[in-house]
């Protein structure tokens, strides 16, 4: 799949934002006064910034409001609702925190809405049978993993940050290796795609068109996989690095800033690969993956 920068920015940033807001809503971090304002502002900024970035790849962003109508069937529509409700639900908690109040029940509700948003985002990808690598439990697990790890790191919770960073690195490595088997498991081959497999082995004799098209650019985007082995290593190491950083450096911003930076590097590398390595079954018609 085409790793569109707008979608990578959106999923990483809004995921981190909603993960951080989840932590704040649960009262895992209790910044107060101006600190509370800044913390919630960072959470809102990331979440809203990511959502705005997601509209950049639309053919008609001016009609985006229509995306709220089909929540009965569409995960994309549900994500829109969940995001708006989560941002609205977080507002009273944020106001309370600035005044020194604990989040309480309102915070719990807002945190669940934030988690629902992350879940809806992941299901947009996990629901697609056509992309077997995404159509697996590791997709929501990774989206929750990145959002909550990032949120905990931003909340300056060293012990939880160490544990989650290591767990996420393992999950990421597992998803890379396990994902390589998904396409074969889905069973789509040129034989089943053309129905000619019953006669014999099928291969492409001549392509349907000599130049590129939307399908090749969007779904059969193989250029992005060029450095996938190196990027996999970079992603796993960068995601794990916050653990030693938090363990070795003194608590506070000195440890938190590099930890979050490495986490973000890992998140962007992993999200690039999430798209670039995802093979769509339509590629079989072109003899490609």
């Amino acid at each position: 799949m085409h790793p569109a920068p707008s979608v990578i920015l959106f999923t990483v940033l809004s995921g981190l934002g909603f993960g951080f807001l989840t932590c704040l809503n649960l009262g895992l971090a209790l910044p107060q006064g101006i600190g509370g304002f800044l913390a919630f502002a960072v959470g809102y900024g990331l979440a809203v910034g990511g959502l705005i970035a997601s509209t950049f790849h639309l053919g008609h962003p001016e009609r985006a409001i229509r995306a709220f109508t089909q929540w009965r069937t569409s995960w994309l529509s549900r994500e829109g609702w969940a995001a708006v409700l989560a941002l609205l639900g977080t507002a009273p908690v944020a106001l309370g925190a600035m005044g020194g109040a604990r989040p309480g029940l309102l915070g719990l509700v807002a945190a669940l809405l934030c988690l629902a948003t992350i879940g809806c985002t992941s299901m947009i990808y996990a629901q697609l049978k056509t992309v077997p690598r995404w159509n697996f439990w590791t997709t929501p697990a990774l989206f929750f993993g990145f959002a909550l790890t990032g949120g905990v790191l931003l909340s300056d919770l060293p012990l939880a940050g160490e544990v989650l960073s290591l767990a996420l690195a393992f999950l990421l490595a597992f998803s890379f290796v396990r994902g390589d088997r998904r396409f074969a498991e889905a069973g789509a081959t040129l034989g089943s795609a053309t129905g000619l497999g019953a006669i014999g082995s099928v291969r492409v004799f001549e392509q349907a068109h000599t130049a590129g098209n939307y399908l090749l650019r969007e779904m059969i985007h193989v250029v992005g996989r060029k450095h996938s082995r190196k990027l996999r290593m970079i992603a796993v190491v960068a995601v794990a690095l916050p653990a030693p950083i938090l363990a070795l450096l003194p608590d506070g911003l000195v440890a938190m800033i590099p930890a979050v930076l490495f986490h973000l590097i890992g998140a962007f590398a992993a999200r690039w690969l999430f798209f670039a390595e995802a093979e769509h079954v339509v590629g079989t018609y072109y003899g490609k993956r």
Partner: peptide, 18 residues
């Protein structure tokens, strides 16, 4: 149509082009 392209992703047959 907002041109999000998700329907083309969901189609196994490459029947939709933006």
């Amino acid at each position: 149509c907002i041109g999000c392209g998700l329907c083309a992703w969901a189609c196994p047959y490459g029947a939709r082009e933006l």
